[in-house]
């Protein structure tokens, strides 16, 4: 039983991290109708920038403290992500308004290549590490309830907590601030938003910036877990089933989808994996999402698709 709970909790925490990446997809899709394949590349880009800045800054400024160096690195990376967001909007998306979905999808795939190439040219292509001082030691919880307790990685726990805080902050930002209200208006109807005087261009830049920040958070967490390397950009492919399961347009959907996929993946790998030779995590997530889609074609929380002739 305690092993089951352990797997379950492990799945929930991985799910939280998937949700972080998925959130980036949802934010951009909601506001601009662009399915942003480049989210994975943005995670990699942000993580690379963060890792290298925190490595370079002690040399540049002569700062000894790890905390201060990390803080400055985060600020610098946020600035870099803003520049990336602005460039993407300015150079690519602005010119692709009103194209069909497939074209936009491929354009963001093109942006993926550019970000991968540029990121590795500037920041190098070795494996780097991000050290933001997250504790790595496991803790044992719930000893009173089960024999031997439940083993949990403290790092995972903190990561999940950060993800939860970020989600709460984003929800507040969307619901309570004027900018958030404008974002929701744009997501609802581009033309109506334009006609009441919401500047579409600026909104898109803001959305990409927010997506960039979630990419940074995801990058820091994944990067300190796995190390910053090229394979980090494939987390986008792991997060895609989450997005479609939760619904492309729903922020809570991304979270709940992430949790379902995270748990499903872990449980399937542990309990079914050894019957078929292991490694089934990645396609199992897609199949799981597919099964849900067969019953709800718009995802769990997506807007209902209404057909009119």
């Amino acid at each position: 039983m305690s092993f089951f709970i352990e797997t379950l909790l492990g799945g929930l925490m991985t799910g939280m991290l998937y949700a972080l990446v998925a959130l980036g997809f949802v934010l951009i899709y909601k506001a601009s109708g662009v399915f942003n394949f480049a989210q994975g590349a943005m995670v990699l880009f942000a993580a690379l920038a963060m890792a290298r800045f925190s490595e370079w800054i002690p040399g540049w400024l002569g700062i000894e403290s790890l905390f201060l160096a990390n803080l400055i690195a985060i600020v610098l990376t946020v600035v870099v992500m803003f520049v990336v967001a602005w460039l993407v909007e300015r150079l690519a998306l602005r010119h692709l308004v009103n194209q069909n979905e497939a074209t936009l999808l491929m354009a963001t795939l093109g942006i993926t290549y550019v970000l991968d190439g540029v990121g590795q040219t500037i920041f190098g292509s070795d494996i780097y590490k991000i050290d933001v001082g997250m504790p790595k030691d496991p803790v044992i919880m719930l000893e009173s309830m089960f024999e031997g307790g439940v083993l949990i990685n403290k790092e995972d726990f903190i990561a999940a907590a950060i993800a939860a805080i970020l989600v709460a902050a984003l929800t507040l930002f969307f619901q309570k601030t004027p900018t958030g209200r404008a974002l929701r208006a744009v997501a609802d109807d581009h033309q109506a938003a334009l006609s009441v005087g919401i500047p579409l261009d600026r909104i898109w830049v803001i959305v990409w910036c927010v997506a960039g920040i979630t990419a940074l958070v995801a990058g820091i967490i994944w990067g300190s877990k796995l190390g910053v390397q090229f394979s980090l950009s494939t987390v986008a492919l792991r997060a895609l089933p989450v997005v479609i399961l939760g619904g492309l347009t729903s922020v809570p959907g991304a979270i709940i989808g992430g949790l379902i996929i995270g748990v499903g993946e872990k449980l399937s790998e542990v309990y079914l994996g050894h019957y078929v030779g292991g490694g089934i995590e990645i396609w199992f997530a897609y199949m799981l999402a597919l099964v849900f889609l067969l019953f709800r074609p718009q995802g769990l929380f997506g807007e209902k698709i209404i057909d009119r002739v």
């Binding site: 690519a92 074209t103 354009a107 093109g110 290549y113 550019v114 991968d116 190439g117 040219t121």
Partner: peptide
């Protein structure tokens, strides 16, 4: 190889913009 993928990606975006 990095420049290659950068230019490849940029050209794709460019083509999509010029001739969707």
């Amino acid at each position: 190889s990095h420049a290659e993928i950068t230019i490849f990606g940029a050209l794709i975006v460019f083509f999509l913009i010029v001739e969707p």
